[in-house]
Write a protein that binds this DNA or RNA. Structure first.
Length: 905
RNA sequence: GCGGAGUUAGCUCAGUUGGUAGAGUGCCAGCUCGACAAGCUGGUUGUCACAGGUUCGAGUCCUGUACUCCGCACCA
């Protein structure tokens, strides 16, 4: 470790209030200039790798990103400081549908239609758009403080990634795992493209159930069928009944006449039909319903497509043709009613699939698409989680993952879009050969014809995302980066994309690299507003993180988010909490300011970060804070190791604020401000310990609040490196020398002192004795050790409690006195404050009564426990013993309090 | 219907093997004590959702109930 000494300067140009704005941009530039975030492909250090879930390239940072990114940044910074070759690989996603829609909308405003522009020109426009806005999200990520290795920045349409995509496609095609087929898929009529099953969101809708009567061809009767979508009757190709349904058995095999079209359709039997529901007869529309589709396949029924890609009715249905399905429904219902076909309409709640991107109703639509077979791919992905080669945190997500994996369906990977990875398939117009190739083709591989046309579809965005953990590391080349960083350590993401992304990365990683893409999957909750509602534009409750950063700084936002992060639950965002941590930043700022104001330059001359004195030379307060510091290091290490971010934040918060500022800095003031030249040595020691402790605290907090800690660290008089973010993260191990200065004895001594001080302050506070009024106090220890400690710290107690005088002997006349009996670690003592002439004793009577009630309650509980034979018999011995001591102490306190109450009233 | 998470102070949440319920924030009172009013000091706040059970002892373990949230499936 290199030891650098920065000249200590007494010139304090630190403002009273922390203003993050100027500091943050300066500090981020400093990191970039020093290449602090760069990781090496080849290193002797152990690797630690995190791949950023790539945000939409034309998107902007929202609060969810802020949370997701901060978690990753904390981990990556922590590991970087802990001696790892720590890399965070950034990237952005082309986000096929979203980006295409945005650009299309934008062009439409200029009066330009995508279809008029043509594919090539349109894609050019999207690239222009990407180049214009692609940096916005990156600069926002930098404002948040993300310590990405920017040289590794990847875009999903980069050449390398595209190569990977094609290689994967061709490879899977050659293994017969990718196939093209005419199948019923989910379709977005607005986007006019197929979407995958998981891109459909089911919402409960209050609809109607229409009962239609279809007459038999031979006039022998009619069958009532029920439907929520009457317009689909145009595509009916059968009516199905249950094979055991006696009501219909006589008609099975006969034909019905479909109203409006007069088409003849058969009555068939199928087990799928529920006899109990409706009339027990189901109209079958194989081209527009998934269940009907399956039945159509089973019974070899014709599949009549009645919809155009944009959701309007196809030609051939007269006035209905060209209508959107909702209008068509209205008109068709009217027509059917006229003909007396509709027997009944009732209200019916059911859930309807909507396109998750646009919110329009998703239509089951018969079309030719590319599919990836998932069954074989899912097997190793299941095994890897079962064997805990990859672990979910929290573990409960394992079940969700498994359930989906076990019920996995083939994935529709083609999209009828222009923006994305075009499917690497060239169809020969002469010999009809399907050429599948990693390279662009101009000649048919079979007949050498030049008459080739590339498949017009692009791949689902998630197809390239699924390769992200290895495509970003250089695959298909066997790069050093891939060898070093794959499998990555942890994937951090929200639970909303476990199926879309996490599961698919697992499958592709195992298929192509033969190893899991990450060892741990950390799933965090989603951010909601202060009332627990989802954040959305329409509700107007979404919060712009950049605006928050402008207001309170990135650090405050980061630590506020992390302070709420536990057990993967969703978290409610509140600006109040943000303010709390803004204040915390200010506290840290001013604590450091104090360090400069209160210490003298000469005391730190030549001193280094790891210089320590001997225990005998530093004060008991120094020993106390160092002891606490050790505990903090241990606890934070444990919390980070176990992804307990809020615990780590709480530990650091209370150490810095309560232990360091409230007590240690106050304890150190009498020494530091002393003009007594005999105290020079103590001053020196305290100055050093103060700076050393502060330095460690800044380091410990750095992963959470990188900007302010880096800024303050740079000003420190003693430190062990120039740049905090690449310095060593403090642990019990690497701070052995310093921590050896801490001691348990010192801890006990100071805790006793704190107890006495607090109890006198309590008497002051409860009796409303103003600070300006000095008072007399008696502190009566019942044993020699406490006696020694307390008299040693006599002046300090007087200063802390604003006493005119302090006595350590028992006061003989305790009338008109406030009395507090105390016990600590086996010692007991009394604090007595004479109140005569100072305050009205009514308040003191109230205080005593309150304390008596409390002690009485304690005594009752303890008596009950200790009076219980079974407790004595069964409870651990040391518990029984400590309870006995507690009881004794409580009884003593009770007597003391009661006596002083008697004297007062 | 299946699965998951939850219910603890006014609010946001901790509570690791069972051993007298915690923090922050808010609220009340008093303070320009030589870093910080974005501060200091003191105080206030609970039928741990409900009902049973196991146990000497349950916020914690078991069973059931109610409510909230989130997935998935079904829905002619």
């Amino acid at each position: 470790m290199s030891e650098t000494n920065i000249d200590f300067t007494k010139e304090i140009n630190i403002e009273k209030q922390y203003s993050p704005k100027e500091i943050e941009s300066r500090i981020y530039d400093l990191w970039l200039k020093n290449e602090s975030f760069k990781a090496s492909d080849v290193s002797t250090k152990p690797p630690y790798a995190v791949i950023l879930p790539p945000p939409n390239v034309t998107g902007f940072l929202h609060l969810g990103h802020a949370l997701d990114h901060t978690i990753q940044d904390v981990l990556v910074r922590w590991k970087r400081m802990s001696g790892y070759n720590s890399v965070w690989v950034p990237g952005t996603d082309h986000a096929g549908i979203s980006t295409q829609s945005v650009v299309e909308k934008n062009l439409a405003q200029e009066g330009i239609l995508r279809t008029e522009l043509g594919r090539e020109k349109f894609v050019e426009k999207v690239w222009e758009w990407k180049n214009q806005y692609g940096d916005r999200i990156v600069s926002q990520m930098k404002r948040l403080g993300n310590s990405c290795d920017w040289d590794r920045m990847t875009f999903t349409l980069d050449e390398g990634v595209s190569k990977a995509v094609r290689k994967v496609f061709v490879n899977l095609y050659n293994k017969n795992m990718i196939y093209k087929g005419l199948k019923l898929v989910n379709w977005s009529p607005k986007l006019e493209t197929a979407i995958s099953d998981i891109e459909v969101e089911y919402k409960d809708v209050k609809g109607k159930l229409y009962h239609l009567a279809y007459p038999l061809e031979d006039g022998s009767g009619e069958i009532i069928v029920a439907t929520t979508r009457p317009e689909t009757m145009l595509g009916d190709t059968a009516v199905a009944v249950h094979p055991k349904d006696k009501r219909y058995s006589k008609w099975v095999g006969k034909n019905l006449v479909l109203p409006l079209t007069q088409r003849k359709i058969p009555i068939i039997v199928d087990d799928y039909v529920d006899q109990e529901f409706g009339s027990g007869a189901v109209k079958i529309t194989p081209a527009h319903d998934f269940n009907d589709y399956e039945m159509g396949l089973r019974h070899n029924l014709p599949m009549i497509n009645i919809l155009n890609p944009n959701g309007t009715l196809v030609e051939g249905y007269g006035a209905f043709s060209g209508l959107k399905s909702q209008e068509a429904r209205k008109k068709i219902v009217e027509a059917l009613e006229e003909q007396g076909v509709i027997k009944n309409i009732e209200n019916h709640a059911h859930s309807v699939g909507h396109c998750s991107k646009t919110g329009v109703i998703a239509e089951p639509f018969l079309s030719e698409q590319w599919f990836l077979k998932m069954n074989e791919l899912s097997k190793p992905a299941i095994r890897s989680v079962e064997s805990e080669t990859t672990k979910f945190i929290p573990e409960s997500w394992t079940k969700t993952y498994m359930h989906w994996m076990h019920n996995i369906q083939d994935w529709c990977i083609s999209r009828q879009l222009w923006w994305g990875h075009r499917i690497p398939v060239w169809n020969c117009q002469d010999c009809q050969h399907v050429n599948v190739s990693e390279d662009d083709l101009t000649i048919c591989q079979k007949c050498k014809s030049k008459n080739l046309v590339q498949d017009s579809d692009v791949l689902d965005t998630w197809f390239s995302s699924a390769l992200w953990p290895f495509s970003t590391l250089g695959w298909p080349n066997n790069t050093e980066a891939l060898k070093t960083f794959y499998p990555t350590n942890v994937l951090v993401t929200g639970h909303d994309i476990i199926f879309f992304w996490v599961a698919r990365m697992m499958m592709q990683g195992l298929e192509f690299i033969k190893d899991v893409p990450f060892r741990t999957i950390y799933i965090h909750g989603l951010i909601r507003d202060s009332q627990g509602r989802k954040m959305s534009k329409s509700l107007g409750n979404s919060v712009d993180p950049v605006e928050m950063i402008d207001q309170v700084g990135a650090d405050a936002l980061r630590i506020a988010l992390m302070s709420q992060l536990n057990t993967g639950k969703d978290l409610k965002f509140s600006e109040q909490r943000l303010e709390t941590y803004r204040n915390f930043m200010n506290k840290i700022w001013n604590a450091t300011r104090f360090a400069f104001i209160a210490t003298e330059e000469s005391h730190l001359d030549g001193k280094t970060f790891s210089d320590v004195s001997s225990k005998s030379e530093i004060s008991v307060f120094d020993q106390w804070i160092v002891f606490k510091l050790g505990q903090v290091m241990e606890s934070v290490d444990h919390d980070l190791e176990n992804y307990r971010f809020s615990d780590a934040v709480n530990t650091l918060y209370s150490f810095l604020w309560n232990d360091f500022c409230d007590w240690y800095l106050e304890f150190s003031k009498p020494t530091l401000y002393s003009k007594d030249s005999a105290l020079e040595k103590e001053k020196m020691a305290t100055s050093l310990v103060l700076f050393q402790t502060l330095g460690r605290a800044l380091k410990l907090m750095h992963p959470f609040i990188p900007f302010i800690t880096e800024e303050l660290y740079s000003k420190l008089a003693v430190k062990d490196s120039k740049i905090l973010c690449t310095s060593e993260y403090p642990t019990m191990k690497n701070n052995k020398n310093l921590l050896a200065m801490g001691s348990k004895d010192a801890w006990e001594e100071v805790e006793l002192l704190k107890l006495v001080i607090s109890s006198i302050r309590n008497i002051r506070g409860e009796n409303s004795i103003p600070l300006g009024q000095e008072i007399l106090a008696h502190v009566v220890p019942k044993d020699e050790k406490s006696q020694k400690i307390l008299s040693f710290h006599k002046t300090l107690i007087m200063k802390f409690c604003k006493l005119s005088e302090i006595n350590f002997d028992d006061r003989t006349n305790k009338s008109k006195c406030a009395v507090s009996p105390l016990s600590f670690s086996g010692s007991s003592l009394e604090v007595i404050v004479p109140l005569e002439g100072i305050v009205d004793i009514d308040e003191e009577i109230k205080r005593l009564q309150k304390n008596i009630e409390k002690v009485k309650k304690d005594i009752n509980i303890l008596n009950q426990k200790l009076g219980n034979e079974n407790f004595i018999k069964n409870a651990p011995e040391d518990l029984v013993e400590s309870d006995k001591i507690l009881l004794k102490e409580a009884e003593m306190k009770f007597r003391t309090l009661q006596e002083s109450l008697n004297r007062l009233s």
